Amino acid sequence: MKEALVLIPSRMAATRLPDKPLIDIAGKPMIVHVLRQAEAAGIGPAVVACDDERIKQAVEAAGGKAVMTSPDHHSGSDRIFEAMKLVDPDGRFDVILNLQGDTPLIEPDAVNAAFEPLADPAVDIGTIMTEIRTEEGRSDPSFVKAVVTPLSGRRNRALYFTRATAPTGDGPLYQHIGVYAYRRAALERFVTLPPSPLEIREKLEQLRALEDGMRIDVSLVDSAPMDINTPADVERLRARLETAG
């Protein structure tokens, strides 16, 4: 397992932040920042899977590759499945990595960390998490918690994902970061499954895989990428880049 196809789902229909992929961040559209981080990870070609010609044009103007997908998809997983069939119809890539299009500061090492668990043939899906270091984050339902059992090094096996504060008792809590490395067969299986009971209850798509018996392993990373969902998030991102630059 040496290479993955990195697919970045991107859509315009964000109600809280209209035209989110094209928002200017330090002179480049946000989606281009994400694409550059994906390319820097060096695990394989990166392609934006979009639903609007304007996104495609912005990516191509920056020298990247994008494919048009249906505007009717209900999830990023469905979008990357369509993109996979368009970009790689012959099945050259055994691993498909889903990188969210609203994480312009994700570190290349974090992308690689999601890919690494698939070195174990027993693992269907790899993903990442980071330790929650604030009391606010421990109780915030928007911080999705990964409940895991440790394996070796920074690798863990996922037992559950929840918006609740879990597990109880002393010890660290971990925030799940929605970067997924799927075996091709696992992605093909996943998109055929109906939404599962716990997925519907928690509003967490990854629970569908666990409920169907798939194995998800989670790498612990040091950094947590900033999701961009509101105008306030955009201003925080710009301020952070100005400080760093």
Rank of each mutant, 00 (worst) to 15 (best):
S196A: 10
R215A: 08
L7D: 00
F190P: 01
D90W: 05
R163T: 07
D120K: 11
E3C: 07
D217N: 08
L193P: 11
A186F: 07
V218R: 14
L210M: 14
V234Y: 14
M30W: 00
G213I: 10
L35K: 10
I8S: 04
L105I: 12
A49F: 03
A119I: 09
P141T: 07
D102L: 03
E53D: 11
G76Q: 04
D90P: 01
T15D: 12
A49Q: 11
E82K: 13
E135T: 11
Q37K: 15
T127P: 12
G213D: 09
M214R: 09
A232G: 06
T162E: 03
F190D: 01
A232K: 05
S196C: 05
D120V: 11
G153M: 11
G27H: 00
L220I: 14
I80F: 01
P172Y: 00
E60W: 06
E235A: 15
G76P: 08
Y180T: 07
R236E: 09
R79C: 14
I228E: 02
L187E: 03
F81M: 13
L237E: 04
S10G: 14
I43E: 07
A146V: 12
L35E: 00
H33T: 06
S139P: 00
G171R: 00
L22Q: 08
E39H: 00
A62C: 03
N112V: 15
E136Q: 08
R163M: 00
G63C: 07
P117V: 10
R92V: 09
T103S: 02
P172G: 00
I106W: 04
V47T: 02
V123Y: 03
L193V: 14
I216Q: 06
P150E: 12
A114V: 11
A66E: 08
V32Y: 02
E136F: 09
P195I: 08
P18F: 10
H73W: 13
T134S: 15
D233N: 12
D72V: 00
R133E: 01
G245A: 11
L7W: 04
M30I: 06
D51V: 05
A158E: 01
